[in-house]
Nucleic acid binder design. Sequence first.
DNA 1: CCACCGATGCGCT
DNA 2: GCGCATCGGTGGA
Length: 212
Amino acid sequence: MSGEAGRLFTRDELALDPVDLAHLLLGSVIEATGPDGTVGVRLVEVEAYRGEDDPASHCYRGRTPRNAVMWGPAGHLYVYFVYGMHFCANVVGTHEDMPGAVLLRAGEVVSGFDVVRKRRPNARGTGELAKGPAILTSVLRVDRAQNGVDLTDPASPVRLHVGERVPAERIRVGPRVGVATAIDTPWRFWDGASPAVSTYRRGGKRRVRPAR
DNA sequence: CCACCGATGCGCT
DNA sequence: GCGCATCGGTGGA
């Protein structure tokens, strides 16, 4: 990396509206250290979720024990559990009056390849891609234990580094994945040059019951 | 390549 | 109890 790239973000830099934070995070590098080693992932796909005016946000119905981290300081990690076996990770942005966060959807592994291969021996292709939010947390080995950690603290098990910004003209925009409400709010952003972007799935009710 | 669908636990109504 | 900010395996084109 060159120039400023490589240093950790400061809290002030991350205290943004989630849509702005989403743009900032594209190209940055999240790094996680576990007992078996350290893995770094360059973020290429993110989604913005903005607090109380966004029906798709976990904040929408107010503060609960689960989403409490999003009411805390910016630059912390909000981790939630979904679909029985998966975790997803978010970076917390602004929080006063309007909690918001950015879901980390996909990235490219940039360090710790050997660790990744051990963690995901069944990964398709080269195993270098973290193509999906729960795959990303699995590769980084982030789960409930890391909920609330400070990404701007060098002593944290999970940290967020400045990377090379994705040029604005390379950023693509689209609807968020798997979201049933606010389908028309195009708050998914990705690096149009990356092969690691996850595949789009529409949200909404699954078929209730087969006809019979 | 794409589409479908089961597994799975918990937060919220 | 319902429904999810999901994944991976299977089966068809």
